[in-house]
Design a protein around this nucleic acid. Structure first.
Lengths: 344, 344
DNA sequence: GTGAAAGCGCTAACAC
DNA sequence: GTGTTAGCGCTTTCAC
């Protein structure tokens, strides 16, 4: 397979390379006849522009970088998140003929910033999508900001800063879930908090409190357990929450993995879900539909968010993306079989 | 953040750009004193070589492409596979200062081949890692082969061809699993086949038959069900397998998702695993440890395989990777609680 | 050990 | 509408 260059196409079509460039880049001011001559030369030679040459000449690459926390540090459940973000970014990239560079970072290493700088300097991506919880890290954010590379942050806990932000209404939807549980007659609704380094997850706790208040229920410390987002921590939290007198009749976990942990835990003791205990999660990961009973949960449209982000970056035309613009996409409550009326 | 070029480094260090290039590329024939002069200029200016310029000048990029089937077509379970392959590839890339381009393909579209050609022509990756089941597709494989780009295939069902192949001994390990079940006293061991387009999965069925033979057990059509690799198909297969007279006492599914489907199905009927039914899977996905009881399964070291592949590609020096070399890495049987002695 | 010059395949800026 | 020219920031070749 010969690797044709623009010169060969130009020669075959009997035009200058500039004209070929015009056709390939869909510029105007090309007559219909030359355009078709060029196009047939392109397809005859199977010509594709060399991206490296393009990048070098134009200082704008056709590359989007996707930065996220290395799944290793998060355990396997995050695979679904990673893949969904990738799918969204890829969708935007594909339709614009961009490629996606993925770059998981270990945010505990002190050279993350340097690593990200290298990526930007070496690969010169046209834009960078920054996933949570990286999107909250001051050092990371400011390093990218300083580089002048357009970037978008996904689900940062706070919206301060100069970048495009794509967020969900986590807090609202958690309040809604809490109200839903209350509406089923639950009066002792427990909450399992997630890893505090993930600010968006922290907002979920706030939503839980809102929902309690909205429903006229009193907040109580003893109904709050701390997890670390992992399945096992859900089991542990369940054991603590349920072993007290007057245990909760509903447990709302800040993510699905912990909620699944709760279900797994109570299953061993023959406690029936949802008859004796309602359980709700957050994220709608694959696991949510694979546990029995299937989880009532909240779905954050990660793929759509990443797509929105990549799309904005691609169409920012290299200029810094609309400063501090915030786009909120709705998280959606999904009611399945793990929640039901409070036991009487 | 200034984007320094090689010229600026050269000027600051008081040497020619060629010398800077030598230092950056760790070539020899540079005196210790110039090297350190250059190095301090590099770090002072925070210089990083522009990869596009490098690629253009050298025709060898520092990019590895990872091609796999778009998870959309496979449903969510495959997220774990995708991420593990990415992790392995990324590990090899990181240590060699390469970047990873990911490119999921929809293998049902007829322009896959063209799409892959474009990727190769435009991005000029130094090598391509081809995941299963793409690694079995004649059209895809031959297109990459023709392009002259070094590539490695992961778990292709057959090893014919001219590329490096990284495979596991699926068949052997399935035979081993079957013998293990037989050794527990099971005489009616059923098998749930996977999607036939995935040849490596097909080999698992062969291994099951081997194991039966090794154990002196007779193969019977009525103990074989067909699934499509998805959770739901495991449920369906279980219903068919178990509703017959003289049902199996053990079910070995060609992947974990289907095995989990079996567990979910029998759970609803109060059939106890492993007391009344043993269940085994293949892959050791996250789900395997999240179902109750946890799945006995076989783990294919996908990350290690992808790492091996990317590493070979990176170190092939642009020459075509050792033709038709096959590296076999062992799949490992993992015994958990879903299997036990046959009911008496 | 070190450097000068050419050129990789494009786009950008300006002719015509 | 179309073409010419000059780089983009490196590596390569060859000379010293």
């Amino acid at each position: 397979m010969a690797k044709a260059t623009i010169h060969e196409v130009a020669e075959l079509a009997g035009v200058s390379i500039k004209t070929v460039s015009r056709v390939v880049n869909r510029e105007k001011n090309v007559s219909e006849s030359t355009r078709s001559k060029v196009e047939s030369a392109v397809s005859e030679l199977n010509y594709r522009p060399n991206q490296s040459a393009r990048n070098l000449a134009s200082t704008r690459s056709r590359l989007i970088g996707l930065l996220y926390e290395d799944p290793d540090t998060y355990e396997i459940p995050s695979a679904g998140f990673v893949v969904r973000m990738q799918q969204g970014s890829l969708k935007a990239c594909r339709s614009a003929h961009y490629e996606l560079l993925i770059h998981p970072c270990d945010f505990r290493k002190d050279d993350v910033v340097e690593e990200i700088q290298s990526l930007i300097l070496e690969a010169r991506p046209a834009g960078v999508v920054l996933a949570a919880p990286l999107s909250n890290m001051e050092a990371v954010v400011s390093a990218i900001d300083k580089s002048g590379t357009p970037f978008a942050r996904l689900s940062p806990g706070d919206n301060a800063g100069t970048s495009l932000v794509i967020a969900t209404n986590d807090r609202d939807s958690c309040a809604e879930m809490t109200r839903y549980l209350a509406s089923l007659g639950h009066e002792r609704i427990a909450f399992i908090k997630g890893d505090p380094s993930h600010k968006a997850v922290a907002n979920r706790f706030l939503g839980y409190q809102d929902g309690l208040r909205d429903s006229g229920l009193e907040f109580s410390d003893r109904l709050v357990a701390c997890g670390n987002n992992l399945f096992e921590s859900g089991e542990l939290a369940a054991s603590i929450l349920l072993e007290q007198d007057d245990p909760p009749t509903a447990i709302f976990a800040a993510n699905d993995d912990m909620a699944a942990g709760v279900i797994r835990y109570v299953d061993r003791f023959g406690i029936s879900v949802p008859d004796q205990l309602s359980v709700a999660g957050f994220d709608d990961v694959a696991l949510a539909q694979q546990v029995f009973p299937r989880l009532t949960t909240i779905r954050q449209p990660l793929a759509a968010m990443a797509e929105l982000a990549a799309d904005a970056l691609i169409n920012s035309g290299g200029s810094t993306v609309n400063s501090n613009e915030i786009q909120v996409v709705d998280a959606k409550m999904i009611i399945r079989e793990s929640t039901g009326p409070a036991p009487t």
